[in-house]
């Protein structure tokens, strides 16, 4: 054992320098030179240059004039310092109660329409930036009414925002909520408050 200690300690030291510092720093150097926007977290800025969020990270939307993301189990909702899912089992009473409450609220907003699965479930990350196209269409009447906009045009904006699966089968169709809300702010600005 003793004769193995020198190579064990020395190689661990060399590996630490090479893999712990050299490797991540080299990748960081290449990444920031070649793909600076992605390397910095795909941040979205307002015209004044202030960071509005990351296009990859969902954020809380509660106002009627915005499309809402999915329920979130990250902290108090969309908290990137506490990413994670609810981890609730399929028969957990709190899960059933939560989905019932959320569904009841949604049903009031758009009676008669089927409530999409992603509208009442929390994502694995709690930071899901997307909703399903069905979920976006479900919310279209509310958003159109709040903005005094024709529903058909809101639906057209949604269709333009749908990302399709790669080659038709890799991944699911989805709509980025932050991007859609920025698009709708640009097309139908609110005259009062933040959206204007």
């Amino acid at each position: 054992m003793l004769s193995h200690l020198r190579p064990a300690i020395v190689s661990m030291g060399l590996f630490t320098v090479l893999l712990g510092l050299g490797y991540p720093l080299a990748v960081t150097g290449v990444a920031q030179a070649a793909f600076p926007a992605q390397a910095a977290g795909s941040l979205v800025r307002d015209p004044g240059g202030k960071v509005v969020g990351s296009v990859l990270i969902g954020q809380t939307f509660a106002k009627a004039e915005y499309f809402h993301g999915r329920p979130s189990a990250a902290g108090n909702g969309y908290d990137p310092t506490a990413s994670g899912g609810s981890n609730m089992g399929p028969l957990y009473d709190k899960l059933i109660a939560r989905e019932k409450t959320d569904a009841a609220a949604l049903r009031k907003e758009n009676p008669g329409a089927t409530i999409p699965a992603d509208a009442v479930t929390t994502s694995g990350s709690g930071l899901d930036p997307d909703i399903s196209p069905a979920n976006a269409r479900f919310q279209a009447p509310r958003v159109a009414k709040a903005r005094n906009a024709p529903e058909a045009e809101v639906l057209a904006l949604i269709d333009a925002a749908v990302a399709k699966p790669l080659l038709g089968f890799i991944g699911q169709p989805r709509v980025n909520v932050l991007a859609l809300n920025r698009a709708i702010d640009a097309r139908f600005p609110m005259n009062n408050g933040k959206g204007g």
Binding site: P24, V27, T28, A31, Q32, A34, F35, Q38, A39, A40, G41, S42, L43, K50, V51, V52, G53, S54, L56, I57, Q59, T60, F61, A62, K63, Y66, Y78, D79, P80, T81, L178, N181, R182, D185, K194, G195
Partner: peptide, 29 residues
């Protein structure tokens, strides 16, 4: 990284969200 995974030594940013809240976004390599 090219497809969107961050790679930075910065600890993160604080975003001012569209609805006016602060969102702390941690970043790493």
């Amino acid at each position: 990284v090219a497809l969107g995974v961050p790679q930075t030594l910065s600890a993160g940013v604080v975003a001012h969200t569209m609805e006016g809240a602060d969102q702390k976004i941690p970043l790493y390599a």
